[in-house]
Design a protein around this nucleic acid. Structure first.
Lengths: 344, 344
DNA sequence: AATAATTGCTTAATCGGTTAAGCAGATTGA
DNA sequence: TCAATCTGCTTAACCGATTAAGCAATTATT
């Protein structure tokens, strides 16, 4: 029932020594600080009896290190980010770090606020899934020499550490997969975004069409606003279906789009894959529940998260000065939603 | 490009005053501390120019308050907890608090570790979704007089603040709903757990059967181990279906169970609701994707989270000494999965 | 025996704020 | 006119740890 916190001073008093001695002993610096055997074990004993727990605030204030990582993501309630957050939490703990998570809602202002709040808390480093238009924030971090690693998204014209899925390749593979399965008029719904990862997904889609001698039609590609995903996805699908060369397959370029898109396809009583083939980005248990399991591009979440933490830790420890730019391959999980009538 | 952190001392030096004065001014204590007008505005001006950001560590060390809330949940990658975490994050920020999230994996030891880690970080208060067998941890907090609020789960024999869904009532309503829709042989798959909220869900289920003159059969109720959810859910369903009085509807007592259950029903080529009615606890976008939208018990996540934060904040501020025990009603979201052939 | 090196510990500064106490000088009151 | 009060500021202790520097006492070296 030690309501009162036990400090070094308490131990020092009880052992009749200075706090310095206690600090040395409890930090395992007996050798370096030439501490006597008996007094050392006495101190340890007392610390144990009093259940001493060091005050991290004091230690951090002194050392300038908080052993805390700030994780900035779009939204923790999105399963992709939640999974990543979980991985990062675990990996950070392994490395002796605590994680503070903040949701930016894909909004540069919120992201800036978040960074400011975390900065005040003297956080040691950041893992950031950048929001749109947050390039100068990132540039700022670079200039202030604050350790950070970009995750999942990066800026091609900012030279900095990142760990990301190869979005281009993933989209290319997804599109080619549909083509291989006999689909020809393949549409994509993506976010209207300046973010490079979105652009890359679109590029991958278009290049695959091109390389496979499918000539792209403008109505096939629709971009929706993040803040109006639901309505705009519906509109997009409507128009993709009624176009002259209406699509026979759809690629959802993101989890949020997929959820809304699939829901709408249900409403329209369209059958997947008979009426429409589907490949989606993002991953979630929910995809398993669709009557027809959805083919999706599985990002290497575990590896992404772990690598991000490791890179960051190395950076924070000053063990690494070079820039690491890592692209990982997504795995196409092929299931029924992308299988044609013929192929089955 | 202020790489160097600006401290009170820097401002004081530039303004040729003591740090005390700067501190008073920047904390709006001009009146109380009788500061002159000109010097005050000069200090403010300089602070602005230098873009001064106070060091929370130092402040916290002195004040003993970190303005940080610890949130302990089972697993951030479970959508229910992710949503709750998001709400709490936002509500806490509104109140000037930062949140540190830790996942306990429904494991008392991990939960204890987490608490210890957070305790060292001098966190002001906790919101806890308790893990199984963590009663003494909670009791400990009570005895150490640490502010905390239990969320979603509570211990009937520990008198403490909590905010929870009324699990009994929710299960009762879900069961009655199935009965009202013509189902009679209603099964439930729950976690094998000593946790009170699980017991309550089971109790609600059984009492509803009882009140509706449906005599309960033992094979209808199956409890599965959290750590082997997938296999055991499959076994449970197998046995519920092959029993003499095989079930015509199932209640999944938790999100994780539902995901695995629905997946298995798909594998078995059972049709919902024609072969089997379904009602589930937990909520997730995924439920919308099932070919037949799943009826579920919607917990008032927003209100739960907000209330938890508010209770905690009041407690931390010493504005409230009484214990608050709040039960909220879940809303039954009735959809196709619980509609009988006749009723449609 | 005188000096050097080692051992075992303490002192005190430091991190960056907060805040009670106190000290001049100006103003007011009797 | 002299004490009391007010005004505007500084001093210094404090929160709890870390750690360089230093001081005796003991042991080793020549």
């Amino acid at each position: 029932m030690s309501k009162q916190k036990v400090s070094l001073k308490d131990i020092a008093r009880k052992a009749q020594v200075s706090t310095a001695l206690v600090s040395y002993v409890l930090n395992g610096k007996q050798k370096e600080a030439r501490i006597g055997e008996e007094i050392a074990s006495k101190i340890k004993q007392i610390a144990y009896e009093l259940n001493y727990q060091p005050n991290y605030l004091a230690r951090s204030l002194r050392s300038g290190k908080t052993q805390t990582i700030g994780l900035i993501i779009a939204d923790i309630s999105n399963p992709f980010f939640a999974s990543i957050a979980r991985i990062i939490e675990d990996e950070a703990k392994q490395n002796g770090y605590t994680v503070i998570i903040g949701s930016s809602d894909e909004n540069a202002d919120k992201s800036r606020d978040l960074l400011a709040v975390l900065m005040n808390r003297q956080i040691d480093g950041y893992i950031i899934v950048s929001a749109e238009n947050s390039a100068e924030q990132v540039q700022d971090l670079v200039e202030k020499d604050i350790p950070f690693v970009l995750l999942d998204r990066y800026f091609p014209n900012i030279y900095t550490d990142f760990v990301s899925t190869d979005h281009y390749e993933a989209a290319y593979e997804g599109t080619s997969h549909l083509i291989a399965n006999g689909y020809r008029r393949i549409g994509m719904i993506a976010y209207r975004s300046a973010m490079y990862h979105m652009k890359e997904r679109i590029r991958g889609y278009r290049e695959s069409l091109n390389d496979n001698q499918v000539s792209f039609r403008k109505p096939w590609l629709r971009e929706v606003n993040f803040s109006r995903t639901e309505q705009e996805v519906r509109m997009a699908i409507d128009e993709q279906l009624k176009a002259k060369s209406s699509v026979d397959a759809l690629i959802f370029a993101s989890y949020g789009i997929a959820i809304n898109g699939l829901r709408y396809l249900n409403e329209l009583n369209l059958t997947v894959p008979d009426d429409l083939g589907v490949v989606s980005f993002g991953q979630a248990e929910g995809f398993d529940l669709y009557y027809c399991p959805i083919t999706y591009l599985k990002q290497p979440i575990g590896l992404l998260g772990q690598t991000a933490v490791q890179l960051l830790v190395e950076k924070m420890n000053g063990q690494r000065s070079e820039t690491a730019q890592i692209l990982m391959k997504a795995e196409l999980i092929s299931r029924e939603s992308s299988t044609t009538r013929n192929a089955r």
